[in-house]
Design a protein around this nucleic acid. Structure first.
Lengths: 195, 195
DNA sequence: ATGATTAGGAACCGTTCGGTACAAAAAACA
DNA sequence: TGTTTTTTGTACCGAACGGTTCCTAATCAT
């Protein structure tokens, strides 16, 4: 019954996500957001109430699309056993981080450092995402042939999770090829049967 | 020959460091800095040219004091063998992160996520600190009885390094006691002899 | 065609940003 | 005591901040 909006909210949120991803919350200015979202202030505040709301929406988007896909890949039994799926994820992260240009890292990891300790509403979403990722690793580890038992699955999933975030942090420091390979190799060791 | 300054620069830098540590670079306002440093704008700009210079000074301070002490502990042969020294570090980090209140994490890790990709001068210092930490782990691993060889030392040091940063990130998500214990247990596995 | 409804755009709000200029104050020297 | 040197506090700068308001333009249902 009224004029339809001229921009695609999904596209706008995606663009906003990448700005927050690269610059963090505080360093992403409203002017910058308007520019990448290709809308003006009027539309911005009409469609999304304020900056923080947009941030929350970008987190939800990341959760749904990126984390969702990652977890799905970790559980996809058609892509090798659980250990192979986990290593494939690490190989991909290591390669993209080593490839020049991609210093953006992982939005979840960045957001945890950036804002988790400062805003309860944001923290809640981040914790949920970490939990989903952890469960993704667990699911993959349930599908490892030599799996010793449930304790091994739980503990290894968490070790792999922390290695994942660690690799993301090291990516920010500009890791070398051998550094990336060594990190992945250590994850491979974690996936091996216990002595 | 002239009036001595009424504040201790070292104390002021320490206070500034903790503000940057908690809030990151952009979110630490000049007003906030002046408040915790207990000086006014005049003294601020006279003593330290600008905000970024203060940030760099706090990084140097952290490098010298905190990273320095950590590396020294990792190399202190009076505190058990290398593996025990590494585990002691992880236990300490896990405990302090789990203890409510300490969500500040590791300044180096925070700074890597916050600013490494945006400022070459800052990145340079951060890379140097990461390298110092890596070498600390290497030195400790040289002092492990079952040490298989130099490749093992290099690769394991890097795996431990990424686990260290990963634990720091998970600390931001408010890790549980069992989560912390599981992470440390995985580091323990990395330190064991290869199969 | 018209009226209702909504997006879009621009002007503008008060506040805070990082940074500067300068004068008063204080201490060390002669 | 007077001079010099440096710190200190304050007033102030222009720009950018996040956010609001309001008017116009566009499109739908009737």
């Amino acid at each position: 019954m009224a004029r339809p909006r001229e921009f695609d909210p999904d596209t706008a949120i995606t663009a906003a996500m990448h700005l927050f991803w690269d610059h963090g919350y505080e360093d992403a200015s409203l002017a910058g957001l308007l520019e990448v979202m290709k809308i003006t202030k009027g539309s911005f505040y009409k469609a999304f109430t304020d900056k923080k709301s947009v941030y929350l929406k970008t987190l939800d988007y990341y959760d749904d699309k990126v984390v969702g896909r990652t977890v799905r890949n970790l559980m996809d039994t058609e892509q090798g056993n659980g250990a192979e799926r986990i290593l494939a994820l690490f190989e991909a992260v290591a390669t993209s981080a080593r490839t020049d240009g991609d210093r953006s890292g992982c939005f979840l990891c960045n957001a945890l450092i950036d804002r988790a300790a400062h805003d309860a509403e944001i923290e809640e979403r981040l914790q949920a995402m970490v939990f989903r990722l952890e469960n993704g690793f667990r699911a993959a580890l349930e599908d490892v042939p030599h799996r010793p038992g449930p304790d091994w699955v739980r503990a290894t999933a968490r070790g792999v999770l922390s290695s994942y975030f660690g690799l993301r942090v090291l990516g920010k420091a500009g890791l070398s090829k051998t550094m990336a390979e060594d990190c992945v190799a250590q994850v491979r060791r974690l996936l091996e049967p216990v002595a």
